[in-house]
Design a protein around this nucleic acid. Structure first.
Lengths: 175, 175
DNA sequence: ATCATATGTTTTATATGTCAAACACAAGGA
DNA sequence: TCCTTGTGTTTGACATATAAAACATATGAT
């Protein structure tokens, strides 16, 4: 009940996640320090927006500023960045290397959901990728075999996933 | 560049998707017709919020109202509902039956991302599930074998996914 | 030292999505 | 008929996230 409200209850918004990622990115060449304008340029939004958004990130304890108004990730901010980056890598790897989704589309999908999937699901997905890539030669061949798997949906109730109504087809329409 | 803005550019918001799902759900017993209060009750938000939100859905051509202010999905609205439901089933099945994520967590994760993943990724994931469930006995055993796979991360650069920095561990921390 | 440019903040505005409260109208019950 | 209750809408408020523009303060070139 009210599962759908979990979306808004998320502590880390998409916007916040990308501000933190941008700070990390910009700061790489400056010992972790980033300027508001560079963050704004990285995100392609205005300095004003960044200035306002940083207030919330400071209040959350994810970023700090020094006397010269330079911005830096705190330990917890950096940990969020690491977790989000890990989830992104795992999702992109799964989408491209296992499912065979085009890299550009995989990047968009990963970016949309990287901050939303739970640690538990992210961890299991990472383990699954490791499983597929593990020493067992049969495992290694599996993903590539799927990439050649293109059976048409039987639409006959024999498909164990669809159970009568073809979910593959259903996926193609709408909007 | 600006991949991260795709999130906001999404035509179907989380809120809109769940309004459509609620209308579909409530309407099941009334030939597709739903009342504002029943939609509000189903979503656990106020009638006022639903009333306002329906304006946007009408403008999008996803719902219609009759003279008695009863609400109904249009053909395109119904198609969106079908697509979202298909994506949810596929995601939940993957999370629980393949990855072994607890059902309650899988439900939350699926709900958060069901409206965000592309048709292309959804379709490939459905095909992947069909592949795993397909006649080949080796395939059938695969997923269940993963559920027993619990190797510790070597943290030695030998893991083909992690490549030195353990993504599995990284997934556990933050916030 | 001065002046132009760059930078960061603030203000005003917009859009979405929510609540609470007031309002109007309808349907029934007494 | 009157009155209560239920229903749908509107209004005012708030939170987030954005832009644009005005503003104050740096920074740097000459």
């Amino acid at each position: 009940m009210d599962t759908w409200k979990e979306f808004e209850a998320n502590e880390l918004t998409h916007s916040a996640a990308h501000h933190l990622l941008a700070i990390h990115d910009v700061g790489l060449e400056y010992g972790g320090w980033a300027r508001v304008s560079d963050i704004a340029r990285a995100l392609n939004i205005t300095r004003g927006s960044v200035s306002i958004n940083l207030r919330a990130l400071k209040k959350r304890g994810w970023v700090e500023t020094d006397a010269h108004r330079l911005v830096k990730l705190t330990a917890s901010g950096l940990q969020i960045v690491r977790t989000v980056m890990a989830k992104r890598v795992v999702l992109e790897t799964f989408f491209t290397d296992v499912l065979g989704v085009p890299r550009s589309q995989a990047a968009i999908d990963s970016c949309k959901i990287e901050h939303l999937i739970s640690h538990s699901t992210g961890e299991r997905l990472a383990l699954f990728l490791r499983f597929l890539a593990s020493g067992d030669a049969a495992n290694a061949a599996r993903a590539s075999r799927f990439r050649r798997f293109h059976a048409k949906c039987p639409k006959s109730g024999t498909c164990e996933v669809c159970k009568g109504q073809c979910l593959v087809d259903e996926m193609k329409r709408a909007i």
